[in-house]
């Protein structure tokens, strides 16, 4: 007789694993995206099950609400037709196989090591730290003597995101100069459909 925790874990893990296999086997982009949706929800369910609610909710808002919506949005805009299927060449198979094999190897190594590490095991009775300590650690306030703050990585990522944002705005801005001034390259200026909007970007 398995314990209740094991049964719940097996259900969540089967959901996650099964749907991630379906992502790979599915030949249509949007169907693959739907299976990926179930995979991501399963992973966030595992986080919730471990008591890491903040991580689980972040997983949902970033991947499901952001990334996956953009994936499907992109597919809808560049609709390849219902009959067309995604095909993978031999180079793709080799590259993907190598990447996933090395990822799997790495994960197995980490898992085997984590059992015998000397760090004190997390007591199930103690509460997991909430979102407060995470935020303070991002502001550079160390939460315990052997755990440093994360101000530098946090600032690096913010600057990186800012650069990406400015780059995206630059790429998406309305191009006002006519084609003759664009310096040799033939750029046909499309009439901007919502002319009032693009001007300030």
């Amino acid at each position: 007789m398995m314990s209740f925790e094991t049964v719940m874990f097996v259900i969540l893990a089967t959901l996650t694993g099964g749907s991630s296999v379906a992502v790979v086997l599915s030949r249509q982009m949007v169907r693959a995206a739907v299976w990926l949706l179930i995979t991501l929800i399963g992973v966030s369910g595992l986080y919730f099950y471990l008591g890491a609610e903040f991580l689980g909710a972040t997983q949902l808002i970033v991947y499901v609400g952001g990334t996956l919506v953009l994936v499907v949005f992109g597919v809808m805009l560049t609709e390849p037709g219902k009959t067309e299927r995604v095909t993978v060449g031999p180079t793709g198979w080799c590259l993907a196989g190598f990447l996933s094999a090395s990822m799997f190897f790495l994960l197995v190594l980490v898992m085997l090591n984590s059992g015998k590490s000397s760090s004190p095991a997390v007591d199930k009775a103690t509460e997991w730290p909430g979102v407060g300590p995470i935020g303070l650690a991002f502001l550079g306030l160390p939460q315990s003597p052997n755990q440093p703050g994360y101000l530098l990585p946090f600032e690096l990522i913010s600057v990186h995101l800012l650069v990406v944002l400015i780059g995206a705005a630059y790429l998406a801005r309305a191009k006002r100069k006519p084609a003759s001034e664009a310096g040799g390259t033939v750029v046909r200026v499309e009439p901007v459909p919502d002319a009032g909007e693009g001007e300030s970007l």
Partner: peptide, 26 residues
Amino acid sequence: DLSIGVFFVLAVMATEVFGVLLAGYS
């Protein structure tokens, strides 16, 4: 009674758009 309830509500309501998107596509 989640300690991050407000964030959780925002996160799952962000996934509602996916249903509409799929309905429109399919």
